[in-house]
């Protein structure tokens, strides 16, 4: 009964992942049936140490899953600002747009994750990209009643001008 590399990554089992990688380094970029890599599982479950370990081993943070999900969108949706910043530090595309109709910023707004919104804006996330259904980050914040995020977005706009 052994866990897959994806489950081990999600559960933060760094030493076990290291052991698996030493036997088969291709596991680093192994995508599951939906296209998710171990790095994406770790990002989705907020495993910061695992994310850093996998990046150090050379995991590609730019890989996207079948529906164009990325490690950055998963971390932004989960509100894991430390992982968001780690990924942004590795040159990922900050405005990846997936088939679910969202960018990392839109997911952070949707999840009411103020610090993630701030981190993404500070790194130049595009506030004009709308969701599939036509919601900009600002319109989404207003519609969801996420007042603090609305304020962060307004302050950011004021800073731009």
């Amino acid at each position: 009964d052994s866990l897959s590399i994806h489950q081990l990554a999600a559960q933060g089992e760094v030493s076990q992942v290291a052991a698996h990688l030493s036997k088969d380094s291709s596991l680093l970029s192994r995508q599951d049936e939906r296209g998710f890599t171990p790095l994406m599982w770790a990002a989705a479950f907020g495993e910061k140490a695992m994310v850093d370990f996998l990046l150090e081993k050379g995991a590609d943070p730019k890989t996207v899953a079948r529906e164009r999900e990325s490690a950055l969108t998963l971390a932004s949706s989960g509100g894991y600002v430390d992982i968001v910043e780690s990924l942004l530090g590795h040159g990922v595309d900050i405005d990846t747009y997936d088939w679910n109709g969202g960018t990392p910023l839109l997911y952070a707004v949707r999840g009411n994750h103020v610090k993630c919104v701030e981190a993404l804006l500070a790194k130049g996330a595009d506030m004009t990209i709308e969701s599939d259904s036509g919601y900009s980050p600002m319109a989404l914040a207003v519609a969801l009643g996420h007042k603090k995020i609305q304020k962060v977005l307004e302050d950011h706009i004021l800073k731009l001008y």
């Binding site: 998963l74 997936d98 679910n100 599939d132």
Partner: peptide
């Protein structure tokens, strides 16, 4: 030993429940 398995990551539908703009 009982293995605890995490469910596969998924992203929420961003505008679920909101009126279409």
């Amino acid at each position: 030993s009982q293995l605890s398995l995490y469910t596969s990551p998924s992203l929420p539908n961003i505008t679920l429940g909101l009126p279409a703009t």
